[in-house]
């Protein structure tokens, strides 16, 4: 553990991190909350990759999902509703050494933070963004979110949600510079873990939408797809999501999908009957904003002085006899 003695800390490279090392406070999510599974999968990833906790930052917005950083024993930034992405971008821009993860809810990302979501895709900064999509506002006690199914009763739609829900996958796949889009459900932990892992290894902005049950407010919202396993379309590829045989026995609707085919990805994303699970789209050739904007010079005093003198000369007036 950390903080034992400085000598130990200096030997961090040799330390083997256990799951416990990534655990902070005991989660205060409701029993049965899908967020727990996402937390477990993420901690498992960090252990498997042996990522130094101090080199990791979890950034979140506001909502149940956004308590996530408090439960990770890493650096964490529990920020404002909708603003997790621009804060994460600021963290990453001059700190390529940090692993940045962003956890948001559906209201957080698709509603109040929608502008940031679109532009984060376009910036394509090297980080992993997970949207915990439970189709509802939970922390504020059951209001309709952009992904709430039409007809679902909530406190702001007591006679049923009046609008068709937003399809975040279709929206994401329409943004230029999109480089990694995946969809997964929290109740199949192996697939969840594998997709987060693939996202972590992708260079660029990895967007994962995770369908997540809220035991209080939307316990049955995913029943149709849970009761009919064939309504999940598992997408696989040579270096795509790994599907264990046991899972293939339950979820028989498995398809080979080339994740470089954005048209096919959009087709899967638009299908309202069958939910795609796995990597819909991946393109490592898209330049990342952190690379594009990489500093060409260090901001040391001597470099700054040199730049300043150049500017003072540009606007300067010299004494006549100089």
């Amino acid at each position: 553990m950390f903080g034992v003695s400085i000598d130990n800390l200096l030997n961090l490279d040799q330390k083997y991190y256990e799951i416990d090392d990534y655990q902070s406070d005991i989660p205060r999510w409701c029993p049965g909350c899908g967020d727990n599974g996402i937390l477990t999968a993420t901690q498992r990833l960090l252990r498997e990759e042996q990522i130094a906790p101090e080199k990791t930052v979890f950034v979140s917005g506001i909502g149940c999902s956004s308590r996530f950083p408090h439960y990770m024993n890493t650096y964490g930034f529990h920020s404002l509703h909708g603003r997790a992405l621009p804060i994460a971008e600021g963290i990453k821009i001059r700190r390529p050494d940090l692993h940045v993860f962003v956890n948001m809810g559906d209201g957080d990302c698709f509603s109040i933070g929608a502008a940031h979501w679109i532009h984060a895709l376009r910036y394509n900064m090297n980080m992993v963004a997970m949207v915990h999509d439970n189709n509802i506002y939970g922390l504020t006690k059951k209001q309709a979110s952009p992904t709430t199914p039409k007809g679902l009763k909530s406190n702001t739609t007591p006679r049923g949600a009046v609008l068709e829900p937003l399809n975040p996958l279709v929206t994401t796949l329409a943004v230029s510079n999109v480089s990694f889009v995946a969809n997964v459900v929290e109740w199949i932990p192996d697939l969840l873990f594998d997709v987060i892992k693939k996202a972590f290894h992708h260079k660029g902005f990895s967007f994962i939408r995770i369908l997540q049950r809220c035991p209080h407010f939307t316990p049955h919202v995913f029943d149709p797809i849970m009761n009919e396993p064939d309504r999940l379309r598992l997408l696989t590829h040579d270096d795509g999501m790994v599907i264990p045989d046991a899972i293939k026995k339950i979820y028989k609707n498995v398809e080979t999908h080339d994740p470089s085919n954005i048209h096919k990805a959009r087709e899967y994303a638009s299908d309202m009957e069958t939910i795609p699970i796995g990597i819909l789209f991946r393109d490592e050739s898209i330049p990342t904003y952190d690379d594009i904007r990489k500093p060409t010079r260090p901001n040391t005093p001597s470099v700054i002085n040199e730049a300043l003198q150049q500017e003072f000369d540009k606007f300067g007036i010299k004494p006549k006899n100089d």
Partner: peptide, 19 residues
């Protein structure tokens, strides 16, 4: 950039401050 810095034009005022 001559001094090692950068200007980021964000998508809105909030994002600029958050960044």
């Amino acid at each position: 950039e001559n001094a090692g810095g950068m200007v980021h034009q964000a998508e809105d005022e909030l994002a600029a401050c958050a960044f």
